[in-house]
Amino acid sequence: MQLNFDKVQGFTVPVKLHKLLNRELAKVETPEQDLNALTFNFRDPSYSAERGGYHPVELRMEKHNDQWQFIYMTDFSYSGGQYPELEREIDVCFETKRVFSLFSGWHNHCDGKALVKLFISNFIDYQTTNAYQTTINFR
Score class of each variant (00 low, 15 high):
Pro56Ala: 14
Leu86Val: 00
Gln67Phe: 09
Asp44Asn: 09
Tyr47Cys: 10
Leu86Asn: 01
Phe76Tyr: 15
Lys63Gly: 09
His55Val: 05
Gln82Met: 10
Pro45Leu: 10
Met73Glu: 12
Ser77Asn: 08
Leu86Thr: 00
Met73Asn: 07
Tyr78Gln: 09
Glu87Phe: 03
Gln82Tyr: 08
Glu89Phe: 04
Thr74Leu: 05
Gly81Met: 03
Arg51Gly: 11
Gln69Lys: 13
Glu87Lys: 06
Ser77Trp: 01
Tyr83Arg: 11
Met73His: 09
Gln67Cys: 15
Asp75Gln: 10
Pro56Thr: 08
Asp44Lys: 13
Gly52Lys: 07
Arg51Pro: 01
Leu86Arg: 02
Gln82Leu: 13
Ala49Phe: 06
Ile71Gly: 05
Leu59Lys: 02
Ser46Gln: 10
Gln69Met: 13
Tyr72Asp: 15
Gly80Lys: 00
Lys63Phe: 08
Glu85Trp: 04
Leu59Val: 07
Ser77Gly: 08
Glu62Ser: 14
Thr74Val: 11
Pro45Trp: 12
Asp75Ser: 10
Glu89Ile: 00
Glu89Cys: 01
Gly80Leu: 00
Tyr72Leu: 07
Glu89Lys: 11
Tyr72His: 03
Tyr78Ile: 12
Tyr54Trp: 10
Tyr72Glu: 15
Glu87His: 04
Asp75Cys: 03
Tyr47Ala: 05
Arg60Pro: 03
Asn65Phe: 04
Ile71Glu: 13
Ile71Pro: 04
Pro45Thr: 14
Phe76Ala: 08
Pro45Val: 08
Met73Leu: 13
Pro56His: 11
Leu59Arg: 07
Gly81Ala: 10
Pro84Asn: 09
Glu50Ala: 13
Ala49Met: 04
Tyr54Arg: 10
Tyr72Gly: 09
Thr74Tyr: 01
Ser79Gly: 09
Val57His: 03
Leu59Phe: 00
Pro45Gly: 13
Leu86Gly: 00
Arg51Val: 12
Arg88Asn: 02
Tyr78Met: 14
Glu62Asn: 15
Glu62Arg: 15
Arg60Asn: 13
Phe70Asp: 07
